[in-house]
Simulated assay, not measured.
Amino acid sequence: MAKILMIEMKPSENSNLLQDFLNSFITRKKTPIKMDPENREKEEILENLNRAKRDLDVANANFEFAQDEGLVDYYIYEIKAAETKYQYLLKKAREKNINVTNFENVHIWNRNKKI
């Protein structure tokens, strides 16, 4: 059988310790990680690429389930806009020598242009 270890504390001490711990944990400020401007720009490009890919995926999914003709046209426009943004960010990432191999297998409708 397991034994339970009990520590005897006065209620006022216990509540103060717990309250102090919770206050220090909740009010603790996060110190931002300092990055040099080049790394910060690379991180922003990768975050924007992730966001653009997610937007493109959502637009494609919405297009697949659209039934109204007006919505179909809208989602075609949305897909085209998301693709254009995605292609721009890929081009920008390559110019900065950022590894984009994880982003190159995305289906783009019109691949006539070289990115």
Results as ranks from 00 to 15, higher is better:
Pro11Lys: 08
Ser12Asp: 12
Asn14Glu: 04
Asn14Thr: 00
Asn16Leu: 00
Asn16Cys: 03
Leu17Cys: 00
Leu18Glu: 00
Gln19Thr: 02
Leu22Pro: 03
Ser24Met: 01
Phe25Pro: 03
Ile26Lys: 15
Ile26Pro: 06
Thr27Gly: 06
Arg28Ala: 13
Arg28Phe: 04
Lys29Glu: 09
Lys29Thr: 09
Pro32Arg: 04
Pro32Ser: 09
Lys34Tyr: 11
Met35Thr: 07
Pro37Val: 12
Pro37Ile: 09
Glu41Lys: 11
Glu41Ala: 14
Lys42Pro: 01
Lys42Ala: 10
Glu44Phe: 15
Ile45Asp: 00
Leu46Ile: 15
Asn48Leu: 15
Asn48Glu: 14
Leu49Ala: 14
Ala52Ser: 13
Ala52Tyr: 00
Lys53Val: 07
Arg54Ala: 13
Arg54His: 08
Arg54Trp: 06
Asp55Asn: 10
Asp55Lys: 03
Leu56Val: 03
Leu56Arg: 01
Asp57Gln: 05
Asp57Phe: 07
Asp57Lys: 08
Val58Asn: 06
Ala59Met: 04
Ala59Asn: 00
Ala59Glu: 04
Asn60Leu: 10
Asn60Tyr: 10
Ala61Ser: 13
Phe63Asp: 04
Phe65Ala: 11
Ala66Tyr: 05
Gln67Ser: 12
Asp68Met: 07
Asp68Phe: 02
Glu69Pro: 04
Glu69Ser: 13
Val72Ser: 08
Val72Ile: 14
Tyr74Trp: 02
Ile76Phe: 02
Ile76Asn: 05
Tyr77Asn: 11
Ile79Phe: 03
Ile79Val: 05
Lys80Pro: 01
Ala81Gly: 01
Ala81Ser: 15
Ala82Val: 01
Ala82Thr: 04
Ala82Tyr: 00
Thr84Ala: 15
Gln87Asn: 12
Tyr88Glu: 07
Tyr88Asp: 06
Leu89Glu: 08
Leu89Asp: 11
Lys91Tyr: 14
Lys92Pro: 06
Ala93Met: 11
Glu95Phe: 13
Glu95Trp: 09
Lys96His: 13
Lys96Thr: 09
Asn97Met: 14
Asn97Pro: 02
Val100Leu: 12
Val100Cys: 13
Thr101Pro: 02
Asn102Val: 12
Phe103Val: 13
Glu104Trp: 05
Glu104Arg: 06
